[in-house]
Design a protein around this nucleic acid. Sequence first.
DNA 1: ACATTGACCTGAGAGC
DNA 2: TGCTCTCAGGTCAATG
Length: 263
Amino acid sequence: MPELPDVEVFRRYLGSTALHQTIDEVGVRSKRLLKGLSERTLRSHLKGRSIQQTDRHGKYLLAGVKANEWLVLHFGMTGFLKYFKNENKEPEYTQMLISFKNGFHLAYVAPRKLGQIFLIDSKKTLIEEKELGPDVLDGDFDLQAFKEALFRSRGMIKSTLMSQKIMAGIGNIYSDEILFQARIHPKATVDRLDRDQRGRLFRALKRVLRKAIEVQADPQRLPSSYLISHRDPEERCPRCKGKVEKIEVSGRSGYYCPRCQSR
DNA sequence: ACATTGACCTGAGAGC
DNA sequence: TGCTCTCAGGTCAATG
């Protein structure tokens, strides 16, 4: 679930719910998710404060609690946020619970515990420490920047799109969609892509991610012309009606249309 | 230095 | 029904 569009939806959700609410208590269920800090440290840094602003870089969500102090949330494969009032409405698999003075709670939910929670002084530091590439929806990430990002990569295009060090935000699902719309084979070698293909890829990337955010990252609300709802070998390509194929690329499973995305 | 693979967790769904 | 097996959108460390 949580690729860039999902995390952006979480960010907006946070901004329309918990923003400016005074934090009363913080509880951590799974210490495994805390990176480089204890529950006690986290609590002492959050208690009495409030989330004053939100930000995002790639798949990382930032919640600013004071000058030079941000709570960073990463959602792994299964994480999400839930803001609720009634105590007995606490979601199953809640790993961290922030309770506010107004009686509401913010649950960080992650059934698979693959996420990360930590504190950082700035977005810049986060980018440096995680060695993240540019956020793909940042205004500065234009065609020129995209081409520069591709320049030092010689692997397969699907892996390159998913590399957070090369560019931040794209995961397995959306990489398939972007490649489908650009009509490029997932295993195509980056250094063999011509100028036209790179242009198509860049435009598809921006278009797909913006559209996904527009529909609240709900796959069911994406156009039926998208591959996303046809990710199954039993499904047919929405464009040519040919069979969708499943392949393995760098250990991840990918779906594509062999006819529309020839090598 | 780079690309790829396995490990990390645990639930859901498929197959028997 | 219940058991076992495989797979899952994430990153990270180890390997080639």
